[in-house]
């Protein structure tokens, strides 16, 4: 429960930091549309290259961004294999007959056990997964001994390879875009930007200010409530509760015994907080001034120009 980082904001000073959060949010959305308009790997690769150049100019650490993407690698691998396996257009690149036999199933079980045993080396998780998948391929193609249940053919086509590379690069570019946004914008600024952008929703009776306030108060109370949870866990542990071991049923009971006091305390807190806000003249829906006012600057103007040019370029490429 300790060391929880909310958002992934990293203090810095490049031009991404100087931009108004609204420009960044709108920019990410428009750029995503632009990326989806691109049709060839070459175009996408150029987009990725431009993105990397921008990150270098903006003094962002590419390693840091790559690290932030790690949890999404599984998704990338899945998309990659999905495209390779199921896209059957174009020239045939590789055809391999696969056997589901006693030996191949045994081999796969052995591979799975080894993979799980090595899973504690978290650093190499990605490579282990790759090795595991390759291992499964060879187990099916080479281990033909023993009783054979069925056979199938594994084939890779030109279009499959193309599409898998295309889709993976596209995903990478999109994830990079949103990572730049969250890495260079404080959660509070992000909230305020969203609030400002969603203000037109007032017409249909949704007040974005309320949501923004709720989010910013939630952000402010997350550490406090985590602290509280640690205290309650310590108090329960001192009376013999065990949060680490035990059967699933016991664990669920422990979590309930933690949640009940947490909820009671949270309700008490929110009541007190409402009192404190009310006595400081807060009236929901009333006009307020803001200490943090969002303002567009020259960086925003340049960024907007760049974003719109990119969109225009993609549209032109698509139409031609």
């Amino acid at each position: 429960m300790r060391n929880i980082v909310i958002g992934q904001y990293l203090p810095g000073s490049g031009f991404f930091y100087k931009m108004d959060p609204r420009t960044k949010i709108m920019g990410v959305i428009i750029m995503m549309v632009a990326i989806f308009l691109l049709e060839t790997i070459v175009q996408l690769a150029i987009a990725l290259a431009i993105g990397i150049v921008l990150m270098i100019l903006g003094r962002l650490s590419i390693i840091r961004i790559a690290r932030g993407m790690r949890p999404l690698f599984v998704l990338l691998i899945f998309t990659f294999f999905f495209q390779i396996l199921f896209n059957r257009e174009g020239e045939l690149y590789l055809q391999e007959s696969m056997t589901v036999s006693l030996s191949s199933i045994g081999g796969i079980i052995l591979l799975t056990i080894i993979w799980r045993l090595l899973a504690r080396f978290k650093r190499f998780r990605f490579f282990l997964l790759l090795a595991y998948l390759v291992g499964i391929f060879f187990a099916f193609s080479l281990l033909t001994y023993g009783y054979t249940f069925t056979t199938f053919t594994f084939s890779i086509y030109e279009r499959g390879v193309e599409m898998s590379v295309f889709v993976v690069i596209r995903l990478l570019v999109i994830i990079t875009l949103s990572t730049i946004l969250t890495l260079t914008t404080k959660p509070t600024d992000l909230t305020q930007g969203l609030e400002s952008l969603l203000r037109p929703l007032k017409i249909i009776g949704i007040r974005s200010e309320d949501f923004a306030l709720i989010i910013s108060i939630s952000l402010r109370y997350i550490p406090t409530i985590l602290d509280e949870a640690n205290k309650i866990m310590a108090a329960q542990a001192s009376r013999g509760a065990d949060f680490q071991q035990g059967k699933l049923k016991d664990k669920i009971r422990q979590i309930i015994s933690l949640l009940v006091p947490m909820f009671i305390i949270a309700f008490k807190r929110s009541e007190d907080l409402a009192d404190a806000m009310e006595t400081r003249n807060f009236v929901p829906g009333m006009k307020r001034t803001r200490i943090h006012e969002l303002a567009f600057n020259m960086t925003d103007a340049f960024a907007s120009l760049f974003i719109l040019c990119s969109l225009a370029a993609s549209i032109v490429l698509r139409v031609l």
């Binding site: 807190r269 907080l273 404190a276 400081r280 003249n281 807060f282 006009k287 307020r288 200490i291």
Partner: peptide
């Protein structure tokens, strides 16, 4: 803890004034 509205000290001191449209 239950009367600290802002994300930072500055924001919290500002909260009341924001409501009064200073």
């Amino acid at each position: 803890d239950n009367q600290f509205v802002g994300v930072t000290v500055r924001d919290d001191i500002a909260f009341g004034m924001e409501n009064l449209c200073v």
